[in-house]
């Protein structure tokens, strides 16, 4: 029997079979790989937190080390007030600060700020997430603060799509280390840290930016200062 391939019936039947086959293959693949993907995202976040602490980790041992170093985590509001009884998806680790930053329907004053409390070499260190925007898209990272509540002891930054070799260098160790030792406060007053392009980064409250990555560097400056201001409100109250 010769089937009329240009007939409507054949075309419909073919399309329906195709859609079912494709749908089944893709759904099972997606469901099968989903736990792996979710785990990857979570491990990456843990690795970033650890990196700000100055702890090297790999995708394999990221989770274990996270449990080893991070002792506690909690969430504060934009005014620096500790938040309690939050639903599961707003707990410190699950809170998506990037989404919160991008979503215009959330007022700035309604944003939540997680704090990860870590213990390293006997000292308490606070790891604080920061988000902002670079030249091409979002940039984010973590800043580690010593227990004097003002000295930065480590940072780790990451980005979505900054220019490789220029803005993208913010994710490199050499840039991240430039923040070490800077203070976000002086005599109980918040003080911003400037990212400069003229090579005077060794001065106090100044960090050298990335040559050719001016806008991304400025983005980092804005991101760190804006978020640290909020956290300092909390720390200065709870010293």
């Amino acid at each position: 029997m010769k089937v009329n391939k240009d007939g409507n019936g054949y075309t419909f039947a073919f399309s329906i079979i195709l859609v079912i086959v494709v749908g089944v293959i893709l759904s099972s693949l997606s469901i099968g790989l989903d736990p792996l993907k979710k785990a990857n995202v979570a491990v990456k976040k843990k690795m970033n937190i650890l990196s700000a602490l100055g702890v090297e980790s790999t995708r394999q041992d990221g989770s274990d080390k996270y449990d080893e170093f991070i002792k506690d985590s909690y969430v504060i509001s934009h005014n620096g007030v500790l938040q309690e009884d939050l639903p599961e998806e707003k707990k410190a680790f699950n809170l998506d600060v990037q989404k919160q930053f991008r979503d215009k329907t959330i007022e700035v004053s309604d944003r939540l700020y997680p704090i990860f409390e870590a213990e390293k070499d006997g000292a308490t260190i606070f790891v604080l997430p920061v988000v902002g925007k670079g030249l091409w898209g979002p940039i984010w990272g973590f800043v580690a603060l010593a227990d004097d509540y003002e000295t930065i002891v480590g940072t780790s930054f990451d980005h979505k799509g900054e220019t490789p070799g220029l803005g993208a260098e913010i994710a490199q160790d050499f840039f991240e280390n430039r923040y070490n030792g800077e203070k976000i406060a002086d005599n109980g007053q918040f003080t911003p840290i400037k990212v400069v392009q003229n090579g005077t980064g060794s001065e106090e409250q100044k960090v050298d930016g990335i040559t050719g990555g001016t806008i991304t560097s400025k983005g980092v400056e804005k991101m760190v200062n804006k978020t640290m201001r909020v956290y300092y409100k909390y720390f200065s109250k709870n010293k």
Partner: peptide
């Protein structure tokens, strides 16, 4: 097997 009318979409 591909019907020529919906070729591109397929």
């Amino acid at each position: 097997l591909i019907p020529s009318r919906v070729r591109i979409i397929v």
